[in-house]
Write a protein that binds this DNA or RNA. Structure first.
Lengths: 206, 206
DNA sequence: CTATGTGAATGGATTCACAGCC
DNA sequence: GGCTGTGAATCCATTCACATAG
């Protein structure tokens, strides 16, 4: 990691590079050029080289990049090795589905606890996790060393829950509610607004 | 709609404007300046004005924008009035959750059918929808006039299913699989990669 | 005097193009 | 010769700043 100010887009692509390299490595491919990798991903070769150049001189002129070495370097940059602990707050249908979703594990995320405020759910096991009361966030987030919360409560409860999350010491929130969370800059927020994604799509097909 | 080449980002913000205007209207606010609206959304006033200017002269100098009129204009631009029909392909935990998710209805989306290829699911009712075999896409998509598919099959099946979708005449796909779908440009694709969102977050909190 | 609408300036990311190394 | 690494050029989105309208 040589330089600062790495664009967020670059980080996102890095993860895609990782996936392709992993796949290529399993297939026995030893070397790959920026052109070949770019073609797989339908982007430009110069984009690949520029992205990688933020982190040093990772390739060999004339022959390209060593697949496994580059894969490991990216894993290192992204911290894929380390496991991050995640909780899910809001055990409606979406929250429950995400609690069962297997795609997270592969990238080193572990769902360590789930929360809701309904009396019916608190104390019961949902998708293999005991459901805790949202008012216990304060206690459990620090105790279990949880960094990231997935927020899937109803829109009306979004802001108050986000504030409880901030008070609990959470570092980041993946927000599935269609509400702009107003927290201090200390908490990194990323929004997944499903209805909005659909609407954007539907605009562009008319 | 006066000009072409409207940035995708603008369309996304337009939907946010719509939400805020709707809320303000319900509260009885009659007028709003670009500054006030921008402050609510934590963006710049010039951004609001630039976005709106793509679609004509929507405000009044000196007093700002008429909340309800602007809301309706945006609804018109985005086609919020019209209902779009959506299907969900892949009835695993995520697909089932989305089939039950209520957030879509508010923006004029209706889930009209769901698909899977497992013998256990086909023919049974899931979240109120009869589950069809994926091989019936060809028949049902045109029959029910479905524009958009939500793709929630396992990664291994993503590409073959996407091809079936394209053949069925679908116009857009909201892709939840971590796979780059390779279809012709005719099908508009938007990707929601949950593990990736989490990974990006986790990079920025270290 | 207030707040829009917009051309011009800025900022950020992508792409080009080529010098430099294998 | 082949391919990287990287400044320079380009493209696109955001922000500024001000003439203009109410």
């Amino acid at each position: 990691m040589l330089k600062r100010n790495i664009p967020e887009k670059t980080i996102q692509r890095l993860l895609l590079y990782y996936r392709y390299l992993n796949f290529l490595g399993q297939q026995g491919t030893k070397n790959i050029s920026s052109k070949s990798l770019a073609d797989l991903m339908e982007i430009r070769d110069s984009q690949v080289r520029k992205d990688l150049s933020y982190f040093g001189r990772l390739g060999k002129r004339g022959s390209g990049y060593d697949v496994m070495a580059l894969r490991d370097k990216i894993a290192d940059i992204l911290g894929i090795a380390g496991e991050s602990k995640v909780c899910i707050v809001g055990m409606g249908s979406l929250g429950s589905a995400l609690a069962a979703y297997k795609g997270f594990g592969a990238l080193g995320f572990k769902i360590v606890s789930v929360f809701d405020n309904s009396k019916q759910k608190v104390g019961r096991k949902i998708r293999g996790h005991i459901c805790h009361d949202i008012d216990k966030l304060n206690k459990i987030v620090p105790r279990d060393d949880i960094d990231i919360a997935i927020l899937t409560v109803p829109a009306e409860a979004a802001n108050e829950t986000a504030i409880k999350l901030e008070q609990s010491g959470i570092k980041a929130i993946l927000n599935f509610t269609p509400v702009k969370l107003s927290l201090s800059k200390k908490v990194k927020i990323s929004n997944v607004d499903l209805a909005m994604e659909l609407k954007t799509l539907s605009f562009f097909i008319r």
